[in-house]
């Protein structure tokens, strides 16, 4: 997937010193335009941070509240006051819940494709799971409203009735269930393909010798997986989960369409109007926002950018470290 080491192409031998070293103009132009494209990517990434910061400053300087610790979001009027605490909490809660739901299932699917399904079927199944990734997020939002919410409502009722003594499942259960848990389930479905794809790749790379050695010692298939495949794939699964987390943090439309927003910091998963994510807030408010509101939303976007940047860099770091150990 990711390569940090330079590619293996051979450079043509340099002409010996003393001979003509003038380079062909075509080569110079081509190489420099290629390099320019590469540098352009770095420039874009830097520009993302810079422009978000520049456009966020007006709102930040007029903010009467504390941007990082306040929970209310009222960036208009004479005394604009807004903070991202509740939004960051909602964003993390939705993403982490999605991750908790998706990761075990994704590992199961990856194992199914790599070690259980018949060889012929496996690649087809991999393709089918990839199809899930090709479906646009707005369609998932529609699906969440139309199909999932009617199905999940009774299930939430049951959850509340039998497990209601656990605080997170406390009632009253929202109906229709436009709650953070519903949004997280939709998010879980959306990140399933990427987590599965990465985990599957790692599991398929398990050294066959390890597997055969385990089987030759009389291990059952599960014991073989536990002794050979899972230890080998652990860091891969962790980084897959982190990539999924990054995806879930930034997912916008599905949350915007499913979740009924609120700005509280609590863990009542079955109640509507308690949580909101940064991305969904931006999508909902941006089209009709005033200048100051736009600036405040951009500030919130900057926070989201920082969070996903940290998560993704951590994931890449784990991947690259694994490479050093195993290859």
């Amino acid at each position: 997937m990711t390569t940090t080491q330079p590619p293996q192409t051979e450079q043509p031998a340099k002409p010996p010193p003393g001979r003509r070293t003038r380079r062909r103009p075509g080569d110079l132009v081509f190489e420099n335009s290629a390099r320019l494209s590469g540098v352009l990517i770095l420039v874009i990434l830097a520009a993302v941070a810079v422009f978000l910061l520049v456009q966020a400053l007006p709102a930040l300087s007029e903010n009467q509240g504390n941007f990082l610790t306040d929970t209310e979001w009222a960036p208009s009027g004479d005394a604009p006051s807004f903070g991202v605490a509740a939004l960051v909490f909602g964003t993390l809660l939705a993403a982490v819940l999605a991750l908790v739901i998706a990761t075990p299932v994704a590992v199961g699917i990856a194992l199914f494709i790599s070690h259980y399904a018949p060889r012929r079927l496996a690649s087809l199944l991999g393709y089918v799971v990839d199809l899930l990734a090709a479906i646009p997020s707005v369609v998932y939002g529609l699906w969440g409203i139309t199909w999932l919410m009617p199905q999940i409502g009774p299930f939430f009722e049951g959850l509340n009735r039998y497990l209601g003594f656990i605080p997170i499942f406390a009632g009253p259960v929202a109906s229709p269930p436009r709650t953070i848990l519903t949004a997280s389930i939709v998010l879980a479905v959306m990140i399933l393909p990427i987590v599965t794809a990465v985990a599957r790749e790692v599991f398929l790379k398990t050294p066959t010798m390890h597997e055969e050695a385990a089987l030759a010692l009389g291990a059952t298939r599960w014991e073989m997986i536990r002794m050979a495949v899972l230890p080998f794939g652990r860091s891969g699964v962790i980084s897959a989960a982190m990539l999924g987390l990054g995806r879930a943090l930034g997912e916008t439309m599905a949350v915007a369409m499913v979740l009924s927003p609120g700005l509280l910091i609590d863990f009542f998963l079955l109640q509507a109007g308690h949580h909101q994510t940064i991305a969904a807030l931006i999508a909902l408010q941006f089209p009709e926002a005033s200048t100051l509101q736009v600036s405040a939303l951009i500030a919130a976007g900057l926070v989201l950018f920082a969070i996903t940047l940290v998560v993704n860099m951590a994931a890449r770091y784990i991947v690259s470290r694994r490479k050093e150990f195993t290859e």
Binding site: R247, A279, L304, A315
Partner: peptide, 8 residues
């Protein structure tokens, strides 16, 4: 960059 949220 692959991980930049689309809204950002």
């Amino acid at each position: 960059m692959t991980g930049i949220p689309s809204i950002v």
